[in-house]
Design a protein around this nucleic acid. Structure first.
Lengths: 229, 229
DNA sequence: GCGTAATCTAGAACGAGTTTCAGTATTGAG
DNA sequence: CTCAATACTGAAACTCGTTCTAGATTACGC
């Protein structure tokens, strides 16, 4: 029916590839990739999703349009990759000043709120990346999974100060729910449908799913529910 | 720099309106509106977001393109309105066969899973509506709020069999978190990044935020956690 | 170095969302 | 019933994401 070239049943993008898909990029290529991501960040920070126009990104990063598409097969890919990039930096920052002493639940809340404050500083950039992330379809699965992985890791580290533990299924579910809440409420805030205090409240609410007990000090309220499944 | 006509600072769409924005629509207008929504549903059910093309919607509903845009100022508006429409029907269905007897937490899980099964029946339609909902920006706030309201209402009714109670702030936060989780995990499922059982697990997990004891007419607070901070 | 495959560039071209416009039809007030 | 305001139609135009083409350039095995 619809003669769409893209995403027929699979999702692979395959832009006339001839070489190995995971080729290790030469130095100049790495530089191009960086320029592109930098240009994207700049445009996004300036005016959000709509301001990230592929032609402009190409021009700003001094790369031909076709090349831009060779590196990032769509605008959404580009912005999700940018998000990954930003998250890596954020992760580094967060790790640098850990919030010891608090019970795990509070550490998670603290981490997410700190991240939130970071995003408040660049609302347009945040909007661009989040819109792309939420809009992404199957063809961006791999990239979205990357973002998901790094986010999960961040929350997991907030729960366990020592990162030697393996997460349980139950714990992963909790982390997924936290992530969902984090993304959605961020979007609501960006769209002016939720206030900052509402975002905070939502985070505190969902954090109640994290069991109280943990290494480090705990305190005494009644836990939400240890029961799973 | 970017000579964008749209969304300069506000977000109002204002398509050369001259009359009152909330004019009560004549009969023929109501019919047109219905035809448009029906056409949208059909196209969406057939091939998802990408298959809902404004020209096709216009043609199928026997309306000029300009008219379509007068009724729904963008594709996203159109799809969010469609979602509202579908939710209303779903709400009716759910109300018709209530799940008495269960504790509130289970009733919520049951309701959401039932809704989920409904969406599984029309995955393309679901995908189209959800993508639009998540992609919506400020200019669609009003419509998104409508969807949000109806969803909240649905979950609220699942918690309280009697609908006479007023929700507390705490309870609203829980409902918001549930909604966030519901939307996000639905999207993950649609994108093939989460399995059905994962969706179920996420819903069950987030439902733990609902206090065990059935308030059954309760005066509300003090249930689970007395609201942080 | 040479030659060839892979990559990059500039630019045109295509597709779908959105806007615009001139003309026609409908509506509603008086 | 008449007239002016409003809404609708059909079609073209505009924007921006995406694809395609032809010709440079670059990378690299020999």
């Amino acid at each position: 029916m619809s003669g769409m070239p893209r995403t027929t049943t699979d999702g692979r993008m395959m832009t006339t590839y001839t070489k190995a898909p995971g080729a290790p990029l030469t130095e100049r290529q790495e530089a191009r990739r960086r320029r592109i991501l930098r240009a994207t960040t700049r445009l996004a920070a300036q005016g959000g999703y709509d301001s990230v126009q592929m032609r402009e990104v190409a021009e700003l990063s001094e790369v031909a349009l076709g090349t831009l598409y060779r590196y990032f097969p769509s605008k959404v890919h580009l912005l999700v990759a940018t998000m990954y990039d930003q998250l890596e930096q954020l992760g580094g920052q967060l790790r640098r000043k850990p919030n010891k002493g608090l019970p795990p639940r509070d550490r998670v809340v603290d981490t997410l709120l700190r991240a939130f404050r970071g995003m408040q500083r660049e609302p347009h950039l945040t909007e661009a990346m989040m819109r792309a992330l939420q809009f992404a379809d199957r063809s961006v699965s791999a990239e979205v999974d990357g973002v998901s992985r790094i986010t999960t890791q961040m929350i997991f580290e907030a729960i366990h100060e020592d990162d030697t533990v393996e997460p349980s299924t139950e714990e992963l579910a909790v982390i997924r729910v936290i992530t969902h809440t984090w993304h959605s409420s961020l979007i609501s805030w960006l769209n002016g449908r939720a206030s900052i205090s509402q975002v905070r409240l939502d985070i505190e609410t969902v954090a109640r799913l994290i069991p109280e007990d943990a290494p480090g000090g705990t305190a005494g309220e009644g836990s939400a529910a240890p029961h799973a499944r």
